[in-house]
Nucleic acid binder design. Structure first.
Lengths: 345, 345
DNA sequence: CCAAGTCACCGAACCGGTTCAGCTATCATC
DNA sequence: GATGATAGCTGAACCGGTTCGGTGACTTGG
């Protein structure tokens, strides 16, 4: 294994000092165009790649951002959301040649501890906070720590840090009006974790819109996003006396599970029961019938979050007027497919 | 923002030299038990956390391992395999307080470039190679580079690096014998990417076993693991003159898609068509009927791979007899569920 | 009582970059 | 022609750890 090439080697080869090489490589003033070209040539020729640790040590930046996920391995596995989000984040980061450090945690305490450690070690320059809760201890924690962070979800009130989010209320209205137009009067919704911010927002939007439309019933049951719970709650709802004619699921996994239960009970989906899923992953198109869903570009969402974080930590200085603060993305669009139809008589 | 605590601060507070502090913190000989306790006490009190960059610079280790995934965002999203694998890897790594660096790439060339850069920058101490191909350029590349790596899949012949794998042939025999016992004589298999090593192994095992059992037909069609292709191929197979009575899918996503197609064609799954899925994710239990599948503990598999990599890079020196070389894991187990039944008359 | 050996600790070099004060040569200015 | 400004570069300090040679104190043994 040949030894690594350092700037000292380049300096020696070019007959200049280490400082000059550093200026040349970083495109800073302080060297003439001629020597810069010469140095760059030698560096390329010798296959120079700067040592991260050395740079981080002097500049005190990690050239990496972190993300801690507080979900079980099983949930992370089936839930397409996270991988799509991560792949979007990753795309933006690697364009700026930043690394992504990933950690899976069990509890909030553990998550806070991870942030504390990452920041103390300078292992990351900033973090992305997923699954933002209505009153989330992490927001103040990272702000107090001074750790740059972006909330993936919002809006967060009294925001001490930027948030990137979709308007969740509008799609809720859209879907309820759509179901109403199809004749549905008894609608149920299997919602996500109740403490999450967007769950609360959707809850409110549904209650409000249902009242405005004068629906006969608008039941909301909270769940943990797993297929098991989705199936269990669906089974209960469909066995009740006055069963709903349409069910809205807060994610696609539960919707697929719900579809399975409908099959199991011998209910024809679309004729006897309509199903709508949030978060349109390819999963929604695999089933028969395909699931009507609320489509968001989650990968783009992730990219967006990463961009905001980058401007926040000043990794790539964009136009100065581009403020690094809360951004709202295009809301989810309704994609009607086979799983919704006119309400049964 | 209060300034970070460094070992110099601790040294000053304890009235000793930086060197002594370093010895004390790392549990090395060179300080008395008394001063060690004193130093540890002060360090804890001041909330000391060592700076990664500084340590990496002197020790020249990154305290992180890397993983580059060469799959599209969409595939990564629906395919539960990767997230489960990653979560297993992550569990082992964070136990050893190593970080996980993730990157998503488009082409092999790009992937090789990522390895070269990571290693040159000393951003990682080693990597895990996923989706091992039958003749995989990455194996020699990382070996030549001197970059510690573990192949997640195998066995790889002429191995210059360790591999961790499951025996894929045995489950193939098991499933075919099971289907045979149920009376199936025309079996099809929608296989994965043809260049992948385990695909080749499964191909061979199926062909061989089918011949041994004297099956009427054993069709294998290769795909790219996506639900779209799974559906398309299933549709074609089921529309053919002498359609199979059982289909084996190389992953769960395609199996779910296949189930959708069966519904679409009005075929009763288990009575008219049996379906078997590889890689039992929770997805397989969401559908109706639930999918018979070949269960592997992918998360444990990931942990295992990470352990081998750790011993390889010597991060945690285990018992010396524990050689860091190719390990074979427990093969997948057949989990019979509702999607398989006796062949139709 | 002194030589040898051991223990605990210090001081300094080192890893590979960045950055800044300072020096020199060049050039414009009055 | 003295003065000042500036571009181009050097040398050294610095970031925060690790590591190693060396030193003084203390124990041990003959």
């Amino acid at each position: 294994m040949t030894r690594r090439v350092t700037i000292a080697d380049i300096a020696a080869a070019a007959g200049v000092s280490k400082g000059a090489v550093s200026y040349a490589l970083n495109g800073r003033p302080g060297v003439s165009e001629n020597t810069r070209r010469k140095i760059l040539g030698i560096a390329a020729e010798m296959g120079f790649v700067p040592n991260r640790a050395a740079r981080s040590l002097s500049v005190s930046s990690a050239q990496a951002v972190g993300i801690a996920l507080r979900r079980s391995a099983r949930t992370l596995g089936i839930e397409p959301y996270f991988m799509e989000l991560i792949s979007g984040i990753e795309a933006t980061l690697s364009a700026g040649s930043l690394g992504l450090t990933l950690q899976i945690v069990d509890t909030v305490e553990e998550e806070l501890e991870v942030y504390r450690r990452w920041w103390a070690e300078r292992r990351v320059d900033g973090v992305l906070l997923c699954d933002v809760g209505a009153s989330d201890p992490r927001l103040d924690f990272v702000a107090d720590l001074g750790l740059p962070a972006v909330a993936v979800g919002g809006p967060v009130e009294g925001a001490r840090l930027p948030a990137v989010w979709h308007d969740d209320a509008e799609p809720c209205r859209e879907i309820l009006e759509y179901l109403y137009a199809l004749g549905h009067r008894r609608v149920a919704r299997i919602a996500g974790l109740p403490h999450l911010l967007h769950t609360a927002i959707r809850d409110a939007a549904h209650t409000e819109t249902a009242a405005a439309l004068g629906l006969e019933s608008m039941t909301t049951v909270h769940s943990d996003y797993t297929g098991e719970q989705g199936a269990r709650i669906t089974r209960r709802l469909l066995s009740s006396a006055n069963r709903p004619t349409a069910i809205i699921y807060d994610n696609d996994v539960m919707a697929v599970a719900g579809l399975g239960v409908a099959h199991e009970l011998g209910l024809h989906v679309s004729e006897q029961l309509s199903i709508v899923a949030w978060d349109d992953s390819p999963l929604c198109r695999l089933t028969h019938p395909a699931l009507t869903s609320l489509t968001r570009d989650i990968s783009a969402y992730g990219s967006h979050c990463a961009e905001v974080l980058l401007t926040l930590i000043g990794a790539d200085a964009p136009s100065p007027e581009k403020r690094a603060f809360s951004v709202q993305c295009r809301p989810a669009q309704l994609s009607p497919r086979g799983s919704t139809g006119p309400a049964p008589a």
